[in-house]
Computed example of a mutant assay.
Amino acid sequence: MTRTSPIRIGVLGTHSTGKTLLLRRIEMELRANGATPVRTGGIGKRAAQTGLPKMERHTPASTEWIIAQGIADEIAAAAQGADVVLADRAAPDAVAYLNAALEYRGEQLHRHERDRLLTLASTQVPKYDLLLATVLDPSVPVQKKHDYDPRYRRLVDEHTHALLEGEAIPHLRVTSDADSQTNAVERALKLCLSEASV
């Protein structure tokens, strides 16, 4: 690839909607075509290991940490020589999780704090060449090892898509349908391989 900065593809959406699997598919296809992708991820788990609340207990502090850590991970991936950065949980994702947690708990966030976190996430949006937003399919069962609250999971899905639409953030909706998944992989490949030939 001839670009001076890597292509960035981010994924966001509620938990257990295939975000990581989708990025793994894209990563595998890119490697098969000679690209050097680096996939970020595991931010939620690292937040919990740090002692920060997550899921329904998500707070402004945990949101800020997740956004900042995601930014750092993407920078590190580029520094490692990636020509494609695959961001598992693009920056706006953390804001959607917080908004869902606040609604779940029946709490309000001060307008200045809400705007500050949204601005922090929004500064990263122009860096993404493609954003993939997974869509919740309630008919797809969640693995038994995951003890997710279905109401919170639904709220995250609603807030994710409301945020993307409300902020007019360009994205591709990806459903659980096999054709939708394949289309997302093909869009990512086309983007990366066309940039490689420039």
Rank of each mutant, 00 (worst) to 15 (best):
L109W: 14
A121K: 10
L136T: 01
T20M: 10
A61R: 15
L21Y: 15
D147V: 03
A82T: 04
Y97N: 11
A72I: 07
R24C: 00
P138T: 02
V140T: 06
A133Q: 09
G41A: 09
V140I: 13
D137E: 08
L136F: 15
G51A: 10
A48E: 14
Y97A: 04
T59Y: 03
G81E: 13
A121R: 05
Y148W: 13
P92W: 04
L86R: 04
D115C: 08
G41V: 07
L102Y: 07
I75F: 11
D129A: 01
R153W: 13
A35R: 15
H58F: 12
D137R: 00
R25T: 03
A79M: 15
Y104G: 10
R105W: 11
T50I: 09
L98Q: 03
R116V: 06
Y128K: 05
N33R: 09
L131I: 04
D73W: 12
G13K: 14
A78V: 06
L131F: 00
H58I: 08
V84H: 10
W65M: 12
G44C: 09
S62D: 09
D137L: 01
L117H: 08
L118V: 09
L109P: 07
L118F: 00
L21V: 14
R89H: 04
Q108N: 12
T63K: 01
P138S: 14
Q108M: 07
G81I: 03
T40F: 11
R153Y: 07
A91N: 07
V38H: 02
K54A: 14
R31K: 08
R39F: 00
W65A: 11
S122I: 00
E107H: 06
M55L: 14
I67W: 04
R154Q: 14
L117W: 06
G41M: 10
G51L: 11
H110Q: 11
G81A: 04
A79F: 07
G42R: 06
V84W: 08
R57K: 06
D129Q: 03
E107T: 00
P37E: 07
P53V: 05
T123H: 13
V95G: 06
A90V: 09
T36F: 13
G81L: 05
Y148Q: 06
A121I: 07
V142E: 11
A101Y: 13
R25C: 01
L131V: 00
N33W: 02
V140N: 04
N33H: 14
A76G: 15
A96K: 08
E64W: 09
E113P: 07
A133Y: 04
L118K: 03
L86G: 02
M55Q: 12
T40H: 11
V135T: 02
A48M: 06
R89E: 05
L30W: 06
K127V: 13
H58E: 13
L109S: 03
I75A: 11
P126Q: 02
Q69V: 13
I66D: 15
T119C: 00
A47I: 11
S122M: 14
D83C: 02
K127T: 10
S139F: 05
L132E: 05
E64L: 05
E113V: 15
I66V: 14
S139M: 10
A48N: 01
Y128V: 01
V85D: 03
S16G: 00
L155R: 08
V38F: 10
E113G: 07
L155K: 09
R114K: 01
S139W: 05
V125H: 14
R114P: 05
P53M: 10
A87D: 12
Y152D: 02
I75Q: 09
G34L: 03
Q143V: 02
K144E: 15
G70T: 02
